[in-house]
Design a protein around this nucleic acid. Structure first.
Lengths: 349, 349
DNA sequence: TGTTAGCACTCTAATGGGTCGAGTGCTAAC
DNA sequence: GTTAGCACTCGACCCATTAGAGTGCTAACA
């Protein structure tokens, strides 16, 4: 069977009505509301077809219909196409929502928290944001300083001005000259290098150049290298998890517990971020409906994600988690505006 | 009316039974279980008295009784006294729960997360832990390095080896000599000082000593001072918030939402930490029952907190949030063990 | 051949009565 | 002061009934 024009119209009408009311919609409702001017009986026949084709579901025999995942998918794809075509309109809207953001964020962390908060407050869904991923990025600056006699602090700055610290305990004191030499060596060798490209052979080469294979210098170099390579946990900030209680279909104990767990053990969200980043070239915004979700605990939700760009090659992810009958229209707009705003904001800094 | 010995016994029996079953307990239950050997009728009379005195509640006329906040308070106080007296016994137990903790934590952050997790998993309640407060603490080391021509990175180490970073943009280049001088000045002036004691007059004095009231040096000194004084958000890690869904009395939408919100907007937990720290000299562990809770959103829970000591004057807080009918006995033991273990662990490092 | 009116049918949600059982409060006797 | 005994209360559960929304099917219509 084919999804002809009339079926499409009816399907969209069903979904829109359901998004508004949250209740199964019957044939009479559609027959009245539409510009289609068809009787409820006709609608019923078409609806039966749509059920067969898997776009809508019948909770039980004598109830109305609700959209299936496939139905939502159809709706969202439709919506995305429309969005594409009204870019000029967006310009205007961007101004309207300026107030939505972000007073003055001195620190990245605070900014991210604010963004998450603003997202959840504006949409009434749960929101998350990941700190930008600088993993693929280049070293910019390394500095070792002696803090105490047998203790060095290493400061490592990465492109994008993110800073790592590491305190290194050494077995015997190190003199100023050696420290200076070591600083020079580290900087000349490593600056400008991608973290990924730092490997054992480079480290060995450094040790050789330092002329000391076994002593303190090797020790320090190893510690620095380890600290550089150390996989930082991907920082993720969340906001508005409590919003899920506003939607009865998510608010029962079991589902709520699953979602809350996912939010708390950021690990699952981390997967979501990686998944999003790996697809980020395709399109700005991605929508995962129900079973499509890459996060096991969110199979009953819809998840909308987008990437923002802090700087060449430094990406982060924002996401919204809500019920499947989410106001996709609003969420997509909000996401699009927000990412654009973030992008321009970062370009300025 | 007075709480005589028999009433106490009955009250305790009621509370213990309720803690086990979670259901209102009737007079017959008590009359059977007890070593008191009283008939249910007698128990009933005593129970009526206990209701009058506010230690227990009657959900409705023909139901059993449940403890009131006042009742729980009585029970917990009782329990705390007992705990005091069995310190020697604890030695043995400490071994048993070694496995509970903590493999090898390279970073403070990871350690704290592990502790929180271990707490929530072991107790089946929600858990939180605050990073140690180093606010009242002393500066140990300051280092300015030039990163780019007009950009300096400041590294500030505080007692307890906690590190702050600050990138400072300056208007014009700074030469090596000045930077060195500045480093010396900052370290000689500020090292060993409590952060609290750094005030405007000290900063002004530094500027005078540097011999430059308006130029780059003043600029840098100001930036460093600001960074030192900047109030870091108190870091709080949580775990097992989803545990609240295991307790029906907390799992309805409204209450769950409140608790989850408190966990997510760490602000309320911050209050809890401050409250606990301000009382920490009284006693190791504190129990807040229902209305006693300093956190508005947790009026339906019980909250158990304790402080740990990382180093002289550096304290943190751990907390457990659960239903009022919490297994106080177990929670108190776990807390006590954990704080001791944390204390010794930090002493070692 | 597609559309529609009509009607029997299905299923849920809501309502109300009836029963059961746990537990109380009170009284009278020990 | 303690206890046995008993009437009473109240929620939990079960069941039958009803109302209403919505369907699916058939037969008639354009």
């Amino acid at each position: 069977m084919e999804l002809d024009d009339r079926k499409k119209k009816i399907l969209l009408a069903i979904i829109k009505t359901y998004l508004e009311t949250g209740e199964p919609v019957g044939s009479r409702t559609i027959s009245k509301i539409e510009g289609l001017e068809l009787s409820s009986a006709t609608i019923r026949n078409e609806m039966a077809d749509l059920v067969d084709m898997g776009y809508i579901l019948q909770p039980h025999t004598s109830a109305g219909r609700i959209p299936s995942d496939k139905g939502y998918r159809f709706y969202v794809d439709q919506l995305m196409e429309e969005k594409e075509q009204q870019i000029e309109e967006r310009e205007r809207e961007t101004d309207e929502m300026k107030g939505m953001l972000i007073e003055k964020a001195d620190k990245m962390e605070r900014l991210l928290k604010q963004v998450a908060r603003s997202l959840s407050v504006n949409t009434n869904y749960a929101a998350m944001i990941s700190a930008p991923q600088y993993h693929m990025n280049r070293l910019k600056f390394i500095q070792l300083s002696r803090m105490e006699e047998k203790r060095i602090v290493a400061v490592i700055v990465v492109e994008g001005n993110m800073i790592k610290n590491q305190i290194i305990d050494i077995d015997e004191p190190i003199d100023d000259e050696t420290l200076l030499k070591l600083n020079m060596l580290l900087n000349t060798t490593l600056n400008g290098m991608a973290i990924e490209d730092i490997n054992l052979s480079i480290i060995t080469k450094m040790k050789q150049q330092a002329g000391d294979q076994a002593g303190i210098i090797a020790e320090v170099i190893d510690a620095v290298a380890e600290s550089i390579k150390a996989d930082e946990d991907l920082e993720i900030y969340t906001s508005g998890a409590n919003n899920i209680f506003k939607y009865p279909e998510l608010a029962d104990n079991e589902k709520a517990s699953e979602i809350i767990t996912a939010f708390e053990e950021k690990k699952q969200l981390t997967n979501l971020v990686y998944e999003t980043l790996s697809h980020s070239d395709e399109k700005g915004i991605q929508v995962y409906i129900g079973e499509e979700s890459p996060v096991e605990n969110m199979k009953d939700c819809s998840v909308v994600t987008a990437t923002y760009e802090l700087d060449e090659g430094i990406h982060g992810t924002i996401g919204i988690i809500g019920p499947k009958r989410m106001d996709y229209d609003k969420v997509l707009s909000t996401m699009k505006k927000l990412t654009t705003e973030l992008d321009t904001m970062f370009k300025k800094n």
